[in-house]
Measured scan of single mutants.
Amino acid sequence: PDDLEKRARELLKRGKNPDEIREYLRNAGYDQSQAEEALKRAL
């Protein structure tokens, strides 16, 4: 898994919901489609 996916998994483990994770990834400078893909793979 790429770093983005790892980060998404990490956040899920900490109890973040998908919307929070999307926002976090966007704020971290990733584009929307990258964030969506990583989140899908992590779920």
Rank of each mutant, 00 (worst) to 15 (best):
P1Q: 13
P1I: 15
P1C: 13
P1D: 13
P1K: 11
P1V: 14
P1Y: 13
P1A: 13
P1S: 12
D2V: 11
D2R: 09
D2W: 07
D2T: 12
D3K: 07
D3A: 11
D3G: 09
L4D: 02
L4V: 09
E5R: 07
E5N: 08
E5I: 15
E5L: 15
K6N: 11
K6S: 11
K6F: 11
K6M: 13
K6R: 14
K6Q: 13
K6I: 10
R7L: 15
R7V: 15
A8V: 15
A8F: 06
A8M: 12
A8Y: 03
A8G: 01
A8R: 01
A8K: 00
R9P: 00
R9H: 08
R9E: 08
R9A: 10
R9S: 08
R9C: 07
R9L: 14
R9N: 07
E10P: 00
E10G: 04
E10K: 04
E10C: 08
L11F: 05
L11R: 01
L11Y: 05
L11I: 01
L11W: 07
L12F: 05
L12A: 06
L12D: 02
L12T: 03
L12K: 04
K13S: 13
K13N: 13
R14A: 15
R14F: 10
R14Y: 10
G15H: 03
G15W: 02
G15S: 02
G15A: 02
K16P: 01
K16A: 13
K16D: 07
N17L: 12
N17F: 07
N17H: 13
P18F: 10
P18L: 12
D19M: 08
D19S: 10
D19P: 03
D19A: 09
D19Y: 05
D19H: 08
D19V: 06
E20F: 10
E20R: 02
E20G: 02
E20T: 04
E20I: 03
E20P: 00
I21H: 00
I21G: 00
I21C: 00
I21P: 00
I21E: 00
I21Q: 00
R22W: 09
R22H: 06
E23G: 03
E23S: 05
E23R: 06
E23D: 12
E23K: 05
Y24K: 04
Y24P: 00
Y24M: 15
Y24D: 09
L25I: 04
L25P: 00
L25V: 01
L25K: 00
R26C: 11
R26S: 10
R26I: 15
N27D: 11
N27Q: 12
N27G: 09
N27A: 14
N27T: 08
N27R: 09
N27I: 11
A28R: 06
A28M: 15
A28N: 08
A28Y: 07
A28S: 09
A28Q: 12
G29W: 01
G29Y: 02
G29T: 01
Y30H: 06
Y30F: 12
Y30I: 08
Y30C: 08
D31P: 12
D31Y: 03
D31I: 05
D31N: 12
Q32H: 12
Q32V: 13
Q32K: 11
Q32R: 11
Q32E: 14
Q32A: 14
S33A: 14
S33V: 13
S33I: 14
S33T: 14
S33E: 14
S33F: 13
Q34V: 13
Q34T: 11
Q34Y: 07
Q34E: 13
A35D: 01
A35R: 03
A35Y: 12
A35W: 07
A35M: 09
A35C: 08
E36D: 11
E36S: 04
E36H: 04
E37C: 07
E37R: 08
E37W: 03
E37A: 12
A38C: 08
A38R: 01
L39G: 00
L39I: 14
L39Y: 02
L39M: 06
L39Q: 01
L39N: 00
L39R: 00
K40C: 12
K40Q: 14
K40L: 11
K40T: 11
R41T: 06
R41L: 08
R41A: 10
R41P: 01
R41H: 07
R41M: 08
A42V: 14
A42E: 02
A42K: 01
A42S: 04
A42M: 13
A42F: 08
A42N: 02
A42P: 01
L43F: 07
L43S: 06
L43H: 04
L43T: 06
L43I: 10
L43K: 04
